[in-house]
Simulated scan of single mutants.
Amino acid sequence: MQQVKGVVARAKGAPVTLETIVIPDPGPGEAVVRIQACGVCHTDLHYREGGINDDFPFLLGHEAAGIVESVGAGVTSVAPGDFVILNWRAVCGDCRACRRGEPQYCFATFNATQRMTLADGTELTPALGIGAFAEKTLVAAGQCTKVDPDARPAAVGLLGCGIMAGIGAAINTGGVTRGKSVAVIGCGGVGCAAIAGSALAGAGTIIAVDIDDTKLARAAALGATHAVNSADLDPVEAIRELTGGFGADVVIDAVGIPQTWKQAFYARDLAGTVVLVGVPRPDMTVPDIPLLDVFGRGGSLKSSWYGDCLPSRDFPMLVDLYRQGRLDLDAFVSEEIGIGDIEEAFEKMHRGEVLRSVVVL
Protein backbone atom coordinates (compact mmCIF):
# COMPACT_ATOMS: atom_id res chain seq x y z
CA MET A 1 0.00 0.00 0.00
CA GLN A 2 1.01 3.65 -0.35
CA GLN A 3 -0.03 7.06 0.89
CA VAL A 4 -1.00 9.98 -1.35
CA LYS A 5 -2.84 13.30 -1.05
CA GLY A 6 -6.53 13.50 -1.94
CA VAL A 7 -9.54 15.80 -1.57
CA VAL A 8 -12.15 14.61 0.91
CA ALA A 9 -15.66 15.77 1.83
CA ARG A 10 -16.05 14.79 5.49
CA ALA A 11 -19.55 16.11 6.20
CA LYS A 12 -22.58 17.56 4.42
CA GLY A 13 -21.92 21.12 3.30
CA ALA A 14 -18.50 21.30 4.95
CA PRO A 15 -15.57 22.66 2.92
CA VAL A 16 -13.45 19.93 1.37
CA THR A 17 -10.05 19.15 2.88
CA LEU A 18 -6.77 17.85 1.50
CA GLU A 19 -6.03 14.61 3.34
CA THR A 20 -3.58 11.73 3.38
CA ILE A 21 -5.17 8.77 1.56
CA VAL A 22 -4.06 5.15 1.88
CA ILE A 23 -4.14 3.26 -1.44
CA PRO A 24 -4.06 -0.56 -1.18
CA ASP A 25 -2.01 -2.60 -3.62
CA PRO A 26 -4.33 -3.70 -6.43
CA GLY A 27 -6.10 -6.99 -5.88
CA PRO A 28 -7.55 -9.31 -8.53
CA GLY A 29 -9.23 -7.31 -11.26
CA GLU A 30 -8.05 -3.95 -9.87
CA ALA A 31 -5.64 -1.22 -10.98
CA VAL A 32 -3.86 1.72 -9.37
CA VAL A 33 -3.83 4.78 -11.62
CA ARG A 34 -1.61 7.85 -11.25
CA ILE A 35 -3.94 10.76 -11.96
CA GLN A 36 -2.75 13.44 -14.39
CA ALA A 37 -5.92 15.55 -14.64
CA CYS A 38 -9.45 15.54 -13.24
CA GLY A 39 -12.36 17.83 -14.08
CA VAL A 40 -14.50 19.51 -11.41
CA CYS A 41 -18.02 18.25 -12.12
CA HIS A 42 -21.31 19.34 -10.55
CA THR A 43 -21.73 15.75 -9.34
CA ASP A 44 -18.77 16.28 -6.99
CA LEU A 45 -20.60 19.22 -5.47
CA HIS A 46 -23.72 17.04 -5.14
CA TYR A 47 -21.66 14.55 -3.16
CA ARG A 48 -20.33 17.27 -0.87
CA GLU A 49 -23.85 18.58 -0.28
CA GLY A 50 -25.24 15.12 0.53
CA GLY A 51 -27.33 15.09 -2.65
CA ILE A 52 -26.18 11.61 -3.73
CA ASN A 53 -26.16 9.74 -0.43
CA ASP A 54 -24.78 10.15 3.08
CA ASP A 55 -21.87 7.70 2.89
CA PHE A 56 -19.35 10.26 4.15
CA PRO A 57 -16.44 10.73 3.97
CA PHE A 58 -16.21 10.95 0.20
CA LEU A 59 -13.05 10.96 -1.90
CA LEU A 60 -14.18 13.36 -4.63
CA GLY A 61 -13.30 13.55 -8.33
CA HIS A 62 -14.23 11.30 -11.24
CA GLU A 63 -13.64 12.99 -14.66
CA ALA A 64 -10.06 11.83 -14.94
CA ALA A 65 -7.21 10.63 -17.08
CA GLY A 66 -3.93 9.16 -15.97
CA ILE A 67 -1.31 6.43 -16.23
CA VAL A 68 -1.80 2.88 -14.99
CA GLU A 69 0.83 2.28 -12.32
CA SER A 70 0.09 -1.31 -11.31
CA VAL A 71 -2.52 -4.00 -11.86
CA GLY A 72 -3.76 -6.98 -9.87
CA ALA A 73 -4.03 -10.62 -10.76
CA GLY A 74 -6.01 -11.52 -13.85
CA VAL A 75 -5.95 -8.06 -15.44
CA THR A 76 -5.27 -8.23 -19.18
CA SER A 77 -7.18 -5.22 -20.55
CA VAL A 78 -4.59 -2.67 -19.38
CA ALA A 79 -0.97 -2.76 -18.26
CA PRO A 80 1.38 -0.49 -16.31
CA GLY A 81 2.28 2.53 -18.43
CA ASP A 82 -1.01 2.67 -20.34
CA PHE A 83 -2.67 6.09 -20.67
CA VAL A 84 -6.31 5.70 -19.69
CA ILE A 85 -9.55 7.60 -19.14
CA LEU A 86 -11.45 6.47 -16.07
CA ASN A 87 -15.14 5.63 -16.30
CA TRP A 88 -17.96 4.66 -13.96
CA ARG A 89 -19.43 2.02 -16.27
CA ALA A 90 -17.22 -1.04 -15.91
CA VAL A 91 -19.54 -3.52 -17.60
CA CYS A 92 -20.04 -6.93 -16.03
CA GLY A 93 -20.52 -8.93 -19.23
CA ASP A 94 -23.07 -11.21 -17.60
CA CYS A 95 -26.21 -9.24 -16.65
CA ARG A 96 -29.39 -9.42 -18.74
CA ALA A 97 -28.40 -6.27 -20.70
CA CYS A 98 -24.90 -7.56 -21.45
CA ARG A 99 -26.20 -10.99 -22.43
CA ARG A 100 -28.58 -9.48 -24.97
CA GLY A 101 -25.72 -7.54 -26.58
CA GLU A 102 -26.43 -4.13 -25.01
CA PRO A 103 -23.52 -3.62 -22.59
CA GLN A 104 -24.04 0.16 -22.74
CA TYR A 105 -27.05 -0.51 -20.48
CA CYS A 106 -25.18 -2.86 -18.11
CA PHE A 107 -27.25 -3.23 -14.94
CA ALA A 108 -24.41 -4.56 -12.78
CA THR A 109 -21.47 -2.22 -13.28
CA PHE A 110 -18.77 -2.62 -10.66
CA ASN A 111 -15.92 -0.86 -8.86
CA ALA A 112 -12.80 -1.89 -6.97
CA THR A 113 -13.46 -4.45 -4.24
CA GLN A 114 -10.97 -2.98 -1.77
CA ARG A 115 -11.58 0.36 -0.10
CA MET A 116 -9.23 3.31 0.09
CA THR A 117 -9.00 4.85 3.55
CA LEU A 118 -7.88 7.86 5.51
CA ALA A 119 -4.64 7.52 7.46
CA ASP A 120 -6.61 6.52 10.58
CA GLY A 121 -8.27 3.62 8.74
CA THR A 122 -11.63 5.32 8.06
CA GLU A 123 -13.04 3.89 4.84
CA LEU A 124 -13.66 6.35 2.01
CA THR A 125 -16.50 6.35 -0.51
CA PRO A 126 -14.98 7.27 -3.89
CA ALA A 127 -17.16 9.52 -6.05
CA LEU A 128 -18.82 7.36 -8.71
CA GLY A 129 -16.49 4.57 -7.66
CA ILE A 130 -13.44 6.53 -8.85
CA GLY A 131 -12.16 9.18 -6.39
CA ALA A 132 -9.74 11.02 -8.66
CA PHE A 133 -9.06 14.29 -6.83
CA ALA A 134 -5.98 12.46 -5.66
CA GLU A 135 -2.46 11.79 -6.79
CA LYS A 136 -3.41 8.14 -7.31
CA THR A 137 -6.59 6.09 -7.03
CA LEU A 138 -7.68 2.46 -6.93
CA VAL A 139 -10.32 1.33 -9.44
CA ALA A 140 -11.59 -1.80 -11.11
CA ALA A 141 -9.53 -2.48 -14.22
CA GLY A 142 -12.75 -2.30 -16.26
CA GLN A 143 -13.00 1.37 -15.28
CA CYS A 144 -9.81 2.07 -17.28
CA THR A 145 -10.15 2.71 -21.01
CA LYS A 146 -6.90 2.86 -22.96
CA VAL A 147 -6.69 5.78 -25.43
CA ASP A 148 -4.13 7.62 -27.57
CA PRO A 149 -1.25 8.55 -25.20
CA ASP A 150 -0.52 11.75 -27.14
CA ALA A 151 -3.89 13.26 -26.18
CA ARG A 152 -3.99 16.10 -23.63
CA PRO A 153 -5.06 14.64 -20.25
CA ALA A 154 -6.91 17.79 -19.11
CA ALA A 155 -9.13 17.66 -22.20
CA VAL A 156 -9.79 13.96 -22.76
CA GLY A 157 -10.30 13.21 -19.06
CA LEU A 158 -13.57 15.16 -19.31
CA LEU A 159 -14.98 12.32 -21.40
CA GLY A 160 -15.09 10.39 -18.13
CA CYS A 161 -18.42 11.99 -17.19
CA GLY A 162 -20.07 15.26 -18.28
CA ILE A 163 -18.79 15.64 -21.83
CA MET A 164 -19.55 12.01 -22.65
CA ALA A 165 -22.99 12.42 -21.09
CA GLY A 166 -23.77 15.36 -23.36
CA ILE A 167 -22.32 13.97 -26.57
CA GLY A 168 -23.97 10.62 -25.90
CA ALA A 169 -27.33 12.22 -25.09
CA ALA A 170 -27.35 13.66 -28.61
CA ILE A 171 -25.86 10.82 -30.63
CA ASN A 172 -26.51 7.61 -28.67
CA THR A 173 -29.80 8.41 -26.91
CA GLY A 174 -31.32 11.08 -29.14
CA GLY A 175 -30.25 9.52 -32.41
CA VAL A 176 -29.17 12.85 -33.90
CA THR A 177 -28.07 12.37 -37.50
CA ARG A 178 -27.39 14.48 -40.58
CA GLY A 179 -29.92 17.22 -41.21
CA LYS A 180 -31.98 16.79 -38.04
CA SER A 181 -33.01 19.78 -35.97
CA VAL A 182 -31.94 19.83 -32.32
CA ALA A 183 -32.70 22.09 -29.36
CA VAL A 184 -30.65 21.91 -26.16
CA ILE A 185 -32.10 23.47 -23.00
CA GLY A 186 -29.35 24.39 -20.56
CA CYS A 187 -25.88 25.27 -21.82
CA GLY A 188 -23.53 24.27 -19.04
CA GLY A 189 -20.89 21.63 -19.63
CA VAL A 190 -23.30 18.81 -20.45
CA GLY A 191 -25.56 20.98 -22.62
CA CYS A 192 -22.63 22.40 -24.57
CA ALA A 193 -21.35 18.87 -25.07
CA ALA A 194 -24.76 17.89 -26.47
CA ILE A 195 -24.46 20.80 -28.89
CA ALA A 196 -20.94 19.73 -29.90
CA GLY A 197 -22.20 16.17 -30.36
CA SER A 198 -25.10 17.35 -32.50
CA ALA A 199 -22.73 19.34 -34.69
CA LEU A 200 -20.41 16.34 -34.93
CA ALA A 201 -23.34 14.20 -36.10
CA GLY A 202 -24.21 16.70 -38.84
CA ALA A 203 -27.39 18.22 -37.41
CA GLY A 204 -28.81 21.10 -39.44
CA THR A 205 -30.47 23.50 -37.03
CA ILE A 206 -28.98 23.46 -33.51
CA ILE A 207 -30.77 25.73 -31.04
CA ALA A 208 -29.15 26.62 -27.73
CA VAL A 209 -31.50 27.71 -24.90
CA ASP A 210 -30.36 29.29 -21.65
CA ILE A 211 -30.96 32.32 -19.45
CA ASP A 212 -27.29 33.39 -19.57
CA ASP A 213 -25.90 35.13 -22.66
CA THR A 214 -22.35 34.08 -21.77
CA LYS A 215 -23.36 30.43 -21.86
CA LEU A 216 -25.19 30.98 -25.14
CA ALA A 217 -22.03 32.48 -26.63
CA ARG A 218 -20.07 29.38 -25.57
CA ALA A 219 -22.75 27.21 -27.17
CA ALA A 220 -22.42 29.13 -30.42
CA ALA A 221 -18.67 28.56 -30.44
CA LEU A 222 -19.30 24.81 -30.11
CA GLY A 223 -21.77 24.56 -32.97
CA ALA A 224 -25.14 26.10 -32.08
CA THR A 225 -26.71 27.82 -35.08
CA HIS A 226 -29.27 29.78 -33.04
CA ALA A 227 -29.49 31.08 -29.47
CA VAL A 228 -32.61 31.65 -27.38
CA ASN A 229 -32.46 33.49 -24.07
CA SER A 230 -35.43 32.00 -22.25
CA ALA A 231 -35.40 34.81 -19.71
CA ASP A 232 -36.66 37.03 -22.53
CA LEU A 233 -38.52 34.65 -24.85
CA ASP A 234 -40.86 31.68 -24.49
CA PRO A 235 -38.47 28.87 -25.47
CA VAL A 236 -41.21 26.63 -26.85
CA GLU A 237 -42.47 29.31 -29.21
CA ALA A 238 -38.93 30.34 -30.15
CA ILE A 239 -37.91 26.77 -30.99
CA ARG A 240 -41.03 26.29 -33.07
CA GLU A 241 -40.43 29.55 -34.93
CA LEU A 242 -36.86 28.48 -35.75
CA THR A 243 -38.04 25.11 -37.09
CA GLY A 244 -40.75 26.18 -39.51
CA GLY A 245 -43.46 26.18 -36.86
CA PHE A 246 -43.10 22.46 -36.15
CA GLY A 247 -40.64 22.03 -33.28
CA ALA A 248 -37.26 20.31 -33.20
CA ASP A 249 -36.70 16.67 -34.10
CA VAL A 250 -34.73 16.17 -30.87
CA VAL A 251 -34.96 18.30 -27.72
CA ILE A 252 -32.41 17.67 -24.98
CA ASP A 253 -33.11 18.81 -21.42
CA ALA A 254 -29.70 19.35 -19.84
CA VAL A 255 -31.16 21.11 -16.79
CA GLY A 256 -33.35 18.42 -15.29
CA ILE A 257 -36.20 20.28 -13.63
CA PRO A 258 -39.94 19.84 -14.30
CA GLN A 259 -40.26 23.22 -16.06
CA THR A 260 -37.52 22.52 -18.60
CA TRP A 261 -38.70 18.97 -19.21
CA LYS A 262 -42.18 20.27 -19.99
CA GLN A 263 -40.67 22.85 -22.32
CA ALA A 264 -38.77 20.06 -24.06
CA PHE A 265 -41.94 17.99 -24.38
CA TYR A 266 -43.85 20.75 -26.18
CA ALA A 267 -40.88 22.11 -28.16
CA ARG A 268 -40.42 18.90 -30.18
CA ASP A 269 -42.00 18.08 -33.50
CA LEU A 270 -44.62 15.36 -33.90
CA ALA A 271 -42.89 11.98 -33.55
CA GLY A 272 -39.90 13.86 -32.11
CA THR A 273 -37.66 12.79 -29.25
CA VAL A 274 -37.16 14.27 -25.79
CA VAL A 275 -33.95 13.35 -23.99
CA LEU A 276 -33.53 14.03 -20.28
CA VAL A 277 -29.84 14.18 -19.37
CA GLY A 278 -29.93 16.85 -16.63
CA VAL A 279 -30.12 15.16 -13.22
CA PRO A 280 -33.30 15.95 -11.24
CA ARG A 281 -33.44 16.23 -7.46
CA PRO A 282 -35.16 13.36 -5.61
CA ASP A 283 -38.18 15.51 -4.73
CA MET A 284 -39.00 16.43 -8.34
CA THR A 285 -41.91 14.87 -10.22
CA VAL A 286 -43.02 14.65 -13.85
CA PRO A 287 -45.03 17.79 -14.70
CA ASP A 288 -48.78 17.63 -15.20
CA ILE A 289 -49.22 16.89 -18.91
CA PRO A 290 -52.49 15.56 -20.38
CA LEU A 291 -52.06 11.91 -21.28
CA LEU A 292 -53.75 12.63 -24.60
CA ASP A 293 -50.85 14.98 -25.43
CA VAL A 294 -48.39 12.19 -24.70
CA PHE A 295 -50.33 9.88 -27.00
CA GLY A 296 -51.13 12.43 -29.67
CA ARG A 297 -47.63 13.80 -30.18
CA GLY A 298 -46.05 10.36 -30.58
CA GLY A 299 -42.31 10.01 -30.58
CA SER A 300 -40.07 9.11 -27.68
CA LEU A 301 -39.47 10.34 -24.14
CA LYS A 302 -36.05 9.11 -23.08
CA SER A 303 -33.61 9.39 -20.22
CA SER A 304 -29.89 9.33 -20.95
CA TRP A 305 -27.68 7.76 -18.28
CA TYR A 306 -24.01 8.55 -18.98
CA GLY A 307 -24.98 9.29 -22.57
CA ASP A 308 -25.81 5.59 -23.03
CA CYS A 309 -22.11 5.21 -23.69
CA LEU A 310 -19.90 2.15 -23.88
CA PRO A 311 -16.48 3.47 -22.80
CA SER A 312 -14.48 0.84 -24.67
CA ARG A 313 -16.26 1.85 -27.88
CA ASP A 314 -16.82 5.57 -27.43
CA PHE A 315 -13.77 6.94 -25.60
CA PRO A 316 -11.12 5.89 -28.18
CA MET A 317 -13.33 7.07 -31.06
CA LEU A 318 -13.93 10.50 -29.51
CA VAL A 319 -10.26 10.90 -28.59
CA ASP A 320 -9.36 10.14 -32.21
CA LEU A 321 -11.83 12.79 -33.39
CA TYR A 322 -10.26 15.22 -30.93
CA ARG A 323 -6.79 14.44 -32.22
CA GLN A 324 -8.03 15.00 -35.78
CA GLY A 325 -9.37 18.46 -34.85
CA ARG A 326 -13.01 17.45 -35.38
CA LEU A 327 -14.08 17.61 -31.72
CA ASP A 328 -12.83 20.59 -29.71
CA LEU A 329 -12.46 19.14 -26.22
CA ASP A 330 -9.97 21.90 -25.36
CA ALA A 331 -12.84 24.39 -25.52
CA PHE A 332 -14.37 22.78 -22.43
CA VAL A 333 -11.27 23.41 -20.29
CA SER A 334 -11.94 26.87 -18.86
CA GLU A 335 -8.97 26.78 -16.50
CA GLU A 336 -6.33 24.48 -15.05
CA ILE A 337 -6.06 24.53 -11.26
CA GLY A 338 -4.21 22.84 -8.43
CA ILE A 339 -5.56 20.16 -6.12
CA GLY A 340 -6.00 22.74 -3.37
CA ASP A 341 -8.27 25.01 -5.44
CA ILE A 342 -11.43 22.90 -5.60
CA GLU A 343 -13.62 24.95 -3.24
CA GLU A 344 -13.00 28.02 -5.39
CA ALA A 345 -13.76 25.96 -8.49
CA PHE A 346 -17.11 24.93 -6.97
CA GLU A 347 -17.96 28.63 -6.54
CA LYS A 348 -17.02 29.45 -10.13
CA MET A 349 -19.11 26.55 -11.38
CA HIS A 350 -22.07 27.66 -9.27
CA ARG A 351 -21.82 31.17 -10.74
CA GLY A 352 -21.67 29.80 -14.27
CA GLU A 353 -18.23 31.27 -14.95
CA VAL A 354 -16.66 28.08 -16.29
CA LEU A 355 -17.50 25.05 -18.40
CA ARG A 356 -14.91 23.01 -16.52
CA SER A 357 -12.13 23.77 -14.07
CA VAL A 358 -9.59 20.95 -14.38
CA VAL A 359 -7.27 19.86 -11.61
CA VAL A 360 -3.84 19.10 -13.06
CA LEU A 361 -1.49 16.99 -10.97
Rank of each mutant, 00 (worst) to 15 (best):
P258W: 08
V279F: 07
A154L: 09
P153N: 07
C144M: 10
P311E: 04
C161S: 09
N229K: 00
I337T: 07
I239E: 01
V319F: 14
D341V: 11
G338K: 06
A224N: 06
H46F: 13
Q3A: 12
R152I: 05
G61Y: 03
E353G: 06
E135S: 06
A248F: 09
A183V: 08
A134N: 04
G325P: 04
W88E: 00
G157Q: 00
R115W: 14
L301A: 11
I342W: 09
R356K: 13
K5Y: 11
F56E: 06
N111V: 14
D269R: 15
A134S: 13
A238K: 00
V209H: 02
A199D: 06
T113P: 08
C95Y: 01
A248Y: 05
H46E: 13
G131Y: 11
L200G: 09
S334W: 04
S300M: 12
H42W: 00
G168S: 05
L158H: 12
T273N: 09
A9D: 00
D283F: 03
R218N: 15
T76V: 15
C144T: 02
G29L: 02
V255A: 07
Q259M: 14
K12G: 14
G74R: 04
Q263A: 14
I289L: 06
A108Q: 10
A264L: 11
Y322T: 05
V22T: 12
V32T: 11
K262R: 09
R268N: 12
T122W: 02
G157F: 01
F110R: 09
T76M: 11
A119E: 13
M349N: 13
L18W: 02
H350N: 12
E336T: 10
P126T: 06
L292W: 12
G142T: 00
I52W: 12
A151L: 10
G61F: 11
G51L: 15
C144Y: 01
D314Q: 10
G39C: 04
C309N: 15
L242R: 01
T76R: 11
L124K: 10
P258L: 07
G197S: 09
L321D: 07
L292M: 15
R356N: 04
V84Q: 03
S181D: 10
L216G: 10
S198V: 06
K12E: 15
A97G: 12
A132N: 08
L138S: 05
P26F: 08
G50R: 02
A108H: 14
D148L: 03
V156Y: 06
E335R: 13
P28C: 04
V16I: 14
E344H: 13
L301Q: 15
L124V: 08
A154R: 14
I211P: 12
L86C: 07
A73G: 10
V277H: 07
P316K: 08
K215A: 01
C144K: 03
I67A: 15
P316D: 02
V250W: 08
T137H: 10
R34A: 14
I171K: 13
P26A: 02
I337Q: 03
A193T: 04
